[in-house]
Design a protein around this nucleic acid. Structure first.
Lengths: 151, 151
DNA sequence: TTCAGTGCAAAAACTTTGCAGGAGG
DNA sequence: CCTCCTGCAAAGTTTTTGCACTGAA
């Protein structure tokens, strides 16, 4: 993955929106892109703290909002009452299947969704900015129920 | 709306699952079915308290879980990091369009979703128990931005 | 009689806010 | 030099938990 071009996009976005370019914001970006799978804001903050970063909670929450606003991250919600983020960088859009028993999350791409979303939005007079589509169920993993393998 | 038949379903469910039949649980059911639109657990708890109910927070949270488990209520999450419930009783399934500016929520039915959900679940080896499909965007209401008219 | 369910209050989990000091433009 | 951004800690919101008591079966 090319971090430099992600930095470039972010820098451009910050400039355009009149936000300041700070080292802290790029530090959060690096951690976010290196995170495998989905993560919560607090999770990322704690990981950064563990790695002896001097970052503050407020800065992490604020920066993740910015990264979602410029589409470098995708904002998700899997029904756990917390916001999750996921790198959007170099990836194609996808939806999620969540096991309600062990928490495993599988991704899938469903080409029909794009059409459905734009048709519905047009019919109801909305200007779409995104959608979320999650399927819940029970997975066939034999270890299911044994471990909370959320990823 | 026929409350009696909802009571009947709930009673049946509780019996089947070996949960006790308590007046508190039916009190929560009544409040939930009478609530117009979507509500959070704490909202319902506070409304019940306002109406001088003797119910406890724990009982409300617990009972709403049960009502969702037996499909009298639908559990929703509109990306606000809180669980919302909605009566499922006597209503057909539907999805939601959420205005990110004023919070308005519109409902729509999309018949194609059912097929997509079962196809995806089968392909990936999941036993489906439900799905959530929310479209986010900006509505055309001229009052949009003025009031938080969540419903 | 028994133990699941209840009310209450405290804790937990996640997020937002207020403030004083520091650095980007 | 003017603010926006930062770190910190405190407060806010929603949900969960522990405990002693009560009432359904």
């Amino acid at each position: 993955m090319n971090l430099n071009s992600a930095h470039e996009s972010f820098r451009k976005y910050l400039k355009k929106e009149n936000h300041r370019i700070t080292p802290e914001r790029f530090e959060v970006l690096d951690y976010a892109l290196n995170y495998k799978g989905h993560f919560g804001a607090d999770e990322l903050f704690l990981e950064m703290k563990t790695n002896h970063s001097n970052i503050s909670r407020a800065t992490v929450y604020n920066t993740l909002e910015l990264l979602a606003a410029c589409d470098l991250l995708a904002k998700r919600n899997f029904g756990e009452n917390k916001t999750r983020y996921e790198s959007n960088y170099d990836r194609k859009t996808h939806d999620h299947l969540i096991c309600i028993s062990c928490g495993a999350i599988k991704e899938f791409s469903e080409p029909r969704m794009e059409n459905i979303v734009s048709e519905v939005a047009e019919k109801l007079g909305f200007e779409t900015s995104g959608y979320s589509f999650n399927i819940f169920g029970k997975c066939t993993n034999p270890n299911c129920k044994l471990k909370k393998n959320v990823e």
